[in-house]
Each structure stands twice: as structure tokens, then as C-alpha cells.
Design a protein around this nucleic acid. Structure first.
Lengths: 218, 218
DNA sequence: TGGAACGTACGCAGTTCGTCGTATTTGGAA
DNA sequence: TTCCAAATACGACGAACTGCGTACGTTCCA
């Protein structure tokens, strides 16, 4: 971990920006490559940098170009991760930021160490989200989906072991691979599968794999 | 904060459950009202309690009744918050848990203090989500609103005919059935499938079916 | 006009799968 | 204790699948 994490900060509030800079430079192995007061300025500065930042902390409400537009453009044209950092948490804003491709969404009152952790999370492919905001994203997600009442494997009288084997089958494993996975003999796997076929009223691996996927047993 | 937070724990892994109990009772102002090994047991125990827990930590993969079903029932019939605590993080499972009404989603390897914080977050109306899982949540949300960015069959250089045959394969059809469907010979189907295997770098029907479903080519 | 890609088709050798039987052990239900 | 379901295991036969080679007509593009 000798390499510093390179970041940029975009925020129109000079005082907050200054405070962020201090907190981040002081605490972690962070290198701030640039700062900007709004999206437009950030887009202008990016091409002039010797190296691109790995993460950009982005405010939403800004003059000239807001953080959501900037996020959309940056994520489309580069691999830079965007971490939204804002005081706003209205449904619409959260939603727009996610659509724009933000990798995380924190409230500005988050503690400095929380922000640091978040930056690291983002680099590891995670998406740190403040609980309050996460609650809204879940609401959104729920509202966009319908119920799904698929039958469970048990409804076909599949035993636990059979279910387990079916799942491996559904991954495309051969009998021998499953046998190795479960430390049982090749023949036993075949016998289980035979029983599964009977219970599911099918008679081939392809059908089993297809059915398992369709019913979302994988 | 003199009042203890009341919780329940549902997990079929006795060792993990025990460890959770110890970590939670030791560290915070937590009172564990009950534990259960699966959803069914939890549902049975709940009505017998003198007071209901505020939060339930819930595993997903469990015998008899899994955590998602249990979550759906509990959230429908009470105000109890459910915090999913699992090692699984497949898209579908996360998705189902959210639909079922879970208020948070943590990986089991989360540190004890993280779990404690999460419980408090949940009580304050937040939705603590492990970054890794949150990333999947955001993906899901994006996929619901934007176009599907999965690789298309063409990206593997599959021809139209090959794609067509792959879709039939994915339904569990035999070579002969596909041949009948497309009015070509059994041997031709086999040749196509052979070419498909080469392009997808696989070598069995089961793998082909699995892959086609995973990439939503069905 | 010549190739490249595609769709069609067949054969052979070897492997895996589907189906049928049979059998032992184990843990829990009656 | 007896009985049964579930998990384990082996054998055998025919069917289906896989890999490799070959072949030919069509279409489309350089």
C-alpha cells in the first residue's frame, strides 16, 4: 500500500472543499490531483492532468454544470469512479446519480474516516452508501419490481442433497466434477440425478439446467 | 440510550449463530430475545415472546424455510426490521431479499462493530448495506432503468443461426428436437453446436444451457 | 472472380448420459 | 424396535453427446 490513492474533488463550496482537502490529506494515503468548483471546470481540468485520478468526490448542486451531468460524462468516457458527496438526498437526485453511473453516495456530514473508507471501498469495486440514502435506493428498487412466486425445489419433493446437486448441475458441471466437489462417487451423483429427473418429470441434463435457471434455483 | 435494543437471530449454522450471540451481547446494549435455526422456527417462536424484537438478523440459505420467505412474512405482518446477514451475494438473492422487505444487507464477514452500527442504522430508518452488495444493488437499479449491458451473443461471434440454436438448446431440447424444429438434419444441429462450443469456450450442453441463461439470452 | 463466412450434411471413434437393477448404511419416524 | 427415506455405491446396456474430419452450395464482399 505504498502507492497513494489519487483523487479529485469537485465542490462549489470553497469552505467545504478546503475542509475536505485538509481532512483527506491529513488522514490517509490520499493524493489530491485537482479540485474544481463545478462540473464544467472538472471536465476542463481532467485532460490537462499528467495522470487521471482513480476517484472523484463530486457534489451534486453546483453552478454551470451539476454533479450528475458531470458524472454521466466522466463515467462514460473513463474508468474514473465517482463518489457523490452531498447534503441532498431526495429520491430524484439519488436516482439520477445512480443512473449517471455514480459508484457511491455519501452524505456530507459523514465523518472523515468514513469518507476515506468509502474511497477504498470504491476502489475495491464496492459501492459505499450512507444508510439513510441506501434506504431510499431500496425503496426505489422495490417500487420498480413485482412479486415473484416461483415454486421452491422442496415443492417438488427434492431432498437437500438433491437440491445441492441440482445447483451444481445447473452450473454446467459434469457428474465427475460434482462427485469431486461433494466427495462422493460418480455413480452416486448419477443416481441422485436420476431421482431428480423423476421428481421434476424430465429426462436430460439440459432440461434440468434449464429448469433450475428458469425457476431461479441457482 | 439506557433501553436495550431487542433483536432476534435466525441462522442454521450453530457455530456462526453462537459467535454472533457472543459478539453482540459482549459489545453493545443488545438484548437477544430469541434465536432460530430457520425461518419456520422463527415464525413459531415470535408469537410466544413477551415482547417482539426490534430487529432480526436473518440468514438466507436455511433449511425448511429460507430467509427470504421468512422476511417477506415478517415484514408483512409486523414492524420488525430485518437485517440480512449472509455469505451469499448473488444478484438474484440480493434482489429477492430487497423485494421481501429487508432493511439492510450485510456480509457475514462484517466486523462485529459494523454489525452493531448496522443495527442502530436500521432503527434510525437507514439501510446499511455492505459496499460489495450495494454495488450489486446499484447495478440492478441501473439495469431496471437503462438498457441491458450484458454481452450479446454477437459479441462471441455467434451467427444468427447459432444463436437461434443456442436458444433452443437452452430450453433443454435434444439435437433431434432442434432438428425437427428447424427442419434441418440432426447432424447439422450437432455441427452448429460444435461451433458454438468453440466460440463460447465450453464443451457440453449443460454449460451451454447454463451460460445462455446466465447471460439472459433466453 | 475469388475467397470468406455461413448453413447444410455425413461418418467414425470415444465419452458421457439415461435407465434399469441391486445393495448397504444411517438416522429418524412410527 | 421396526420400518422407511435418504444417501451412498456398483454394474450393464443402449442412447445421446463430443471431437474431428470432410464436403458442398450460397451469399456477400474485396
Amino acid at each position: 500500500m505504498s502507492e497513494k490513492i489519487t483523487i479529485g474533488i469537485v465542490d462549489d463550496n470553497a469552505a467545504l472543499l478546503q475542509q475536505l482537502k485538509e481532512n483527506l490529506t491529513g488522514a490517509g494515503n490520499i493524493e489530491i490531483l485537482f479540485t474544481a468548483a463545478h462540473g464544467e471546470e472538472a471536465l476542463q481540468k481532467l485532460p490537462t492532468l499528467k495522470k487521471l485520478p482513480q476517484v472523484i468526490l463530486m457534489d451534486i448542486e453546483m453552478p454551470v454544470m451539476n454533479g450528475i451531468e458531470a458524472t454521466a460524462i466522466i463515467t462514460k468516457e473513463s474508468e474514473i469512479k465517482i463518489l457523490i458527496l452531498t447534503v441532498f438526498d431526495t429520491d430524484e437526485k439519488v436516482f439520477d446519480a445512480i443512473k449517471a453511473g455514480a459508484s457511491g453516495y455519501l452524505l456530507k456530514d459523514s465523518k472523515p474516516h468514513r469518507i476515506l473508507t468509502a474511497i477504498e471501498d470504491v476502489l475495491m469495486g464496492g459501492a459505499p452508501i450512507s444508510p439513510h440514502i441506501a434506504a431510499k435506493t431500496l425503496e426505489l428498487l422495490r417500487s420498480k419490481t413485482t412479486v415473484n412466486k416461483e415454486k421452491q425445489p422442496e415443492d417438488y419433493n427434492l431432498s437437500e442433497r438433491e437440491t445441492e446437486i441440482l445447483k451444481l448441475l445447473a452450473k454446467g458441471f459434469s457428474y465427475q466434477q460434482i462427485a469431486n466437489e461433494l466427495f462422493i462417487s460418480h455413480g452416486t451423483v448419477r443416481k441422485h440425478v436420476e431421482n431428480i429427473y423423476g421428481k421434476l418429470h424430465i429426462n436430460s441434463k439440459a432440461q434440468a439446467v434449464s429448469m433450475a435457471h428458469q425457476k431461479k434455483w441457482v
